[in-house]
Amino acid sequence: MSEERETRLLMIAPTSNVTPDQLSRTIHAMGERISVKETCYGCLIEGPRDLVRKVRDAARELDPNGIFSKIRAYPLGDPRRCRAHHGTRPGFSQLEMEWNALTNISAGLDASDRGEKVVEPEPKKQLPVTEFKKICEVNQ
């Protein structure tokens, strides 16, 4: 088992019914040797790498397509990263924006599970100049 530190953030999609509190309590209840910190978007977990991944997989069972995760470079409570220390770091805005997009990704995962076939629409092309000219002439 890898003892290397892994810090991971778990983020709940806006469409999921799971709450950060529920997620954190579920993880606590697992009784594993990892740290858990509830956040506004889900929670942060930290511990030996393999254990963190095991917990991630188990926690995801609450809502497999509604809970997302990525690793975080900084350990929990690292003052270099802490918002209280001197305001939000740039990555915070990014997380906010990705959180909004999770609705669509969640829907995509559900569709994939259902085996839905997705057809890629033809990309929109720019209007040929000759066509545009005609439109301009009509409107003159």
Binding site: A101, T103, S106, A107, G108, L109, V118, E120
Partner: peptide, 11 residues
């Protein structure tokens, strides 16, 4: 993706 359909396509 800008909507669910595009989300499905990405996934």
């Amino acid at each position: 993706p800008e909507d669910e359909e595009q989300g499905k396509l990405v996934v």
